[in-house]
Nucleic acid binder design. Structure first.
Lengths: 127, 127
DNA sequence: TACTTGCTTGGAGTGCACTCAAGGGTTTTA
DNA sequence: TAAAACCCTTGAGTGCACTCCAAGCAAGTA
């Protein structure tokens, strides 16, 4: 079950990661600073070298962000992951709460969309 | 087609409007200051007296806010309404742009919801 | 080697949408 | 009528999520 060691493990600079994720370099450094990223590996001269694992994590964080979850909650989730397996229950709760909020938000947006449709119809035929 | 004059027109104080709309008194005053509300009628001593018309407008603004429209765009819409009938086209465009953004947001949230469902399933059975 | 580009840090600054404070006048209730 | 509750204005403060700055070190290219 142990991960195989790879001598050709790809490592990305911060600018590469910024380009891939759409996040700014500033935001990537900030994420690490506030604990939203595990500490990123460094080159001999101290520059960040991101792994594919980091990229996966950023992808998931991007999804959490897309849900509208606050940065504070995302940091909390990241802490729970670092703390290990015994936090699985709490992680699930956090995700379930977020899911409820997302569902409520979708309902709210759908309602607002109906009002928008109605109003736009009232403007129909206006040039 | 003229509106009939009513001697019993209901007028609401700011605290009544806050209670009805869920907005704070601060926010109501701020909305007026920035031009998101037409100027609200005043009592002889200068206190705000909101009408049912104001309440309707706040209801619509609430819907716009629920779409995630920025305050700046809502103010723009309010300006267009004040400018009269010749702005109907631009108002419709603003609403249509908002509609496109809402639809995109719903899609994004739905995608994120799928990821959340998947992750939560992975935590299933954890106590 | 000189130059350009990229990366580092800590801390300051930005934009948004409120939210509150201070100091004072007004209205309602006991 | 006096206390309590409510309302007014201007201007400052808050929380969030970035975003930028300064000063300096490192890496790649002509």
């Amino acid at each position: 079950m142990s991960q195989s060691l790879s001598l050709t493990q790809t490592r990305y600079t911060i600018s590469e990661v910024a380009a891939r994720t759409g996040l700014s370099q500033h935001t990537l450094r900030w994420y690490e600073r506030i604990g939203l990223m595990p500490h990123v590996d460094r080159s001999h001269s101290g520059q960040r070298r991101f792994t594919d694992r980091d990229l996966d994590w950023l992808g998931f964080v991007g999804k959490l962000r897309a849900t509208g979850m606050s940065v504070a909650d995302m940091v909390r989730y990241a802490e729970l992951v670092r703390e290990g397996e015994h936090t699985r229950g709490e992680r699930r709760e956090l995700l379930e709460r977020t899911r409820r909020e997302v569902r409520a938000r979708i309902t709210e947006l759908t309602d607002a969309l109906a009002v928008l449709d109605y109003k736009i119809d009232m403007y129909a035929g206006t040039r």
